[in-house]
Amino acid sequence: MGHSGIEGAIAVVTGAGQGIGRAVARALAEEGAVVAALDLDPDRARATAADLAAEGRTAAAYGCDVRDPAAVEDAVDAVERDLGPVAHAVNVAGVLRTGPVVAAADADWAELFAVNATGVFHVSRAAARRMVPRGTGTITTVASNAAGVPRADMAGYAASKAAAAMFTKSLGLELAPHGIRCNVVSPGSTDTPMQRGLWSSADGAARAVAGTPEKFRTGIPLGRIGDPEDVAAAVAFLVSPAARHITMHDLYVDGGATLRA
């Protein structure tokens, strides 16, 4: 068990089947939370929960499409019925579509917003509705440093993440009187399946570290690409009582890549 003050608390993590979501699920479980691993792919969710159970943690898996408000309500109901009251909700589920705007497909734009922005709305609303009467809880959204700095060929993604970040901060203002904290964690280039899908060559990580001036993209001053665990550690801090006086904050975990513009 951890000693972060979240032992036994129920934590819902979306996108928990892989990448940052999986790392967040593990980090919270290691701090003693009971993790509800949600993922569009129920098999991936079950794999995450099974791995945590094998390590002596308490976890359960739920298939859930965050694009569907009824599915989200059903999943959160199931979590509260099976495990108990949700104390922490972490929005990690996300999709990436890239390319120039002039060539962008309507379906790609719609999908970016359906998952990255509307999905965050659905999950956060469901969590908030249950947390408000209890007067406690945290909601944390994993956005992107692209939400704060323009990115060529990532306009839709950046816009959807900016929407999610501002939604989460605004929600934090509404929920502050109820003792509920809402924060954002904004990763930069992080070694995940989503990131690897961007790399067109074996030196993808090196190129991310070096930056691409022709795309107006700064490199990573700390000289390394992030690990999912780096992002998960930031989430675990913001969820914990150590961050009890922090809300509406956006914590960049990007090795300095945005120069915090």
Rank of each mutant, 00 (worst) to 15 (best):
A158N: 03
T98E: 12
A71E: 10
E229Q: 14
R46E: 15
T168S: 09
A61N: 11
V95W: 07
A243F: 00
A232W: 12
G148R: 00
G17M: 05
M131E: 04
D227K: 07
I225A: 04
A117L: 10
D82N: 08
A164L: 11
D203K: 14
V66M: 00
S144C: 05
A110H: 10
G5S: 06
Y252F: 14
D39M: 08
V95I: 15
V92P: 08
L96I: 11
A9G: 13
H245M: 15
D51T: 15
E174L: 01
A53N: 12
D68G: 06
L238A: 02
A37Q: 07
T118M: 10
G137L: 01
D227M: 08
N145E: 12
T138A: 15
A114R: 06
E7H: 13
T190R: 07
A61H: 12
E55L: 14
A11I: 03
V76H: 10
D51C: 10
V235R: 03
G119Y: 13
D254Q: 05
E30S: 13
L259T: 04
R46L: 07
A243S: 08
R22G: 00
A9F: 07
Y62W: 13
G2Y: 01
Q18H: 14
T168C: 05
P42N: 06
D74Y: 06
V235S: 06
A105D: 13
V66F: 04
D39N: 12
A147N: 08
R67C: 12
G223Y: 06
L112S: 13
A70D: 12
L112F: 04
A261F: 13
G223H: 02
R57G: 05
N116D: 14
V12S: 07
K215A: 15
A236C: 03
D106K: 03
A176Y: 05
V235A: 08
R181Q: 10
P150L: 09
R46P: 10
T247M: 00
I6G: 11
V123A: 00
G135C: 01
A208C: 13
G137Y: 01
G94E: 10
A59W: 03
V35S: 02
A127L: 08
D254G: 04
G137Q: 00
P177L: 01
A59G: 08
A16L: 00
A205W: 14
V253K: 00
E174P: 02
G32W: 02
T258N: 09
S189W: 13
R22S: 04
A152I: 14
G56P: 06
V76C: 10
C64S: 11
R181K: 09
L171W: 03
A107W: 08
G148C: 04
G21A: 11
L259V: 09
R207E: 10
R46W: 02
A104D: 08
S189Q: 07
D106C: 01
F121E: 02
R97N: 04
C64L: 05
D41I: 01
V132L: 05
A45R: 11
T218W: 06
R207A: 13
A16M: 04
A60C: 09
L38K: 01
I180R: 03
L38H: 09
P150I: 12
D153M: 15
R81T: 10
M194G: 15
I220L: 04
A11Q: 04
Q195W: 12
D203V: 10
A29P: 05
F121V: 07
R125A: 08
G148Y: 14
S189T: 12
I225D: 05
R260A: 04
P42T: 09
A104L: 13
E111G: 11
A162S: 11
